[in-house]
């Protein structure tokens, strides 16, 4: 489904702030894979997701999605293949527009937009049904401005918007990190529900190792812009937090060693 080959990205090249964010990423996802991505700060997790989404051009390598080379497409052109949920609940929705308007806008992702009316009556009924499935009581508030919703409600809405029109790949970039634990659990539950029902190919970045182990059929760990650990299926389900901590320390240890060499 998704194939990354030798994807590299360096920010601020040639300056003191030079940062190799992706140091040659090779990754292949099968259709229906639900992959959790973990790693320390600056490991390149978000950069990897953003390079797939086309937020910035990559320096080298190729990104294939469903057989199409999307490596050099602009962000808005890739959107037809991708559903995205951001860490910041404010980024995924338009605050001054109504809930139904946001959904109708998202339902037209990747389609040509015309001078037809922006939302139809049939759509409204469909959205009422879909919102009811979220179990947040939003189905009675279709004409409310999204700015009136809480962060968790907005994130759940963004999730629905991202999947309203089936995406080839769903990108979740720490989408529960800004929420309180209870709301985060609810949004994760919805994520599982939607991804499961639609059998969506999904990449989910998370800081929570427990979630990373519990969810999905595959887990990758990143460090210094590389994938340092890739585990799936049976082996993944047997993973424990301690295993991941050990891997983390192993990776961090190398960094420490490098630092010592520099200082030494």
């Amino acid at each position: 489904m998704l194939t990354l080959t030798g994807v590299r990205k360096t920010f601020n090249p040639g300056t003191v702030n030079e940062k190799v964010a992706l140091a040659g990423i090779d990754l292949h996802l099968e259709r229906g894979d639900f992959v959790t991505v973990i790693g320390g700060n600056g490991a390149g997790k978000s950069t990897m997701l953003n390079s797939i989404a086309g937020v910035f051009p990559i320096d080298s390598g190729t990104i294939l999605l469903g057989g199409n080379d999307i490596s050099r497409l602009p962000e808005h052109a890739r959107a037809r293949y991708l559903g995205r949920v951001f860490q910041d609940p404010m980024r995924g929705t338009a605050a001054d527009m109504q809930i139904d308007e946001n959904l109708a806008f998202a339902a037209r992702r990747g389609k040509s937009r015309t001078l037809r009316w922006g939302i139809s009556k049939a759509e409204r009924e469909e959205y009422t049904e879909e919102l009811a499935k979220l179990g947040l009581g939003l189905e009675t508030r279709l004409s409310d401005k999204v700015g009136l919703l809480s962060g968790g409600q907005r994130q759940a809405l963004t999730l629905l918007m991202a999947t309203l029109q089936r995406p080839d790949l769903l990108l979740l970039d720490e989408h529960t990190a800004a929420l309180d634990p209870k709301t985060a659990a609810k949004v994760l539950e919805l994520t599982e529900q939607i991804v499961g029902e639609e059998n969506l190919t999904t990449l989910m970045v998370t800081h929570n190792m427990h979630d990373a182990i519990r969810l999905g059929n595959r887990l990758i760990m990143m460090s210094d812009g590389k994938i340092i650990y890739d585990v799936r299926g049976e082996e993944k389900s047997r993973l424990h937090r301690a295993d991941l901590m050990a891997k983390f320390e192993e990776a961090a240890g190398e960094e420490l060693a490098n630092d010592r060499m520099l200082l030494g």
Binding site: G92, T93, A94, F105
Partner: peptide, 28 residues
């Protein structure tokens, strides 16, 4: 009428949240 159409909605959304608009496939 115009701001109620699909294109008009895209204009309103652009003023609201450019990140969202790009992520949903519109060239801002």
């Amino acid at each position: 009428w115009f701001f109620g159409t699909e294109i008009g909605s895209a204009l309103r959304a652009t003023g609201n949240n450019e990140d969202m608009v790009r992520a949903l496939g519109v060239d801002i």
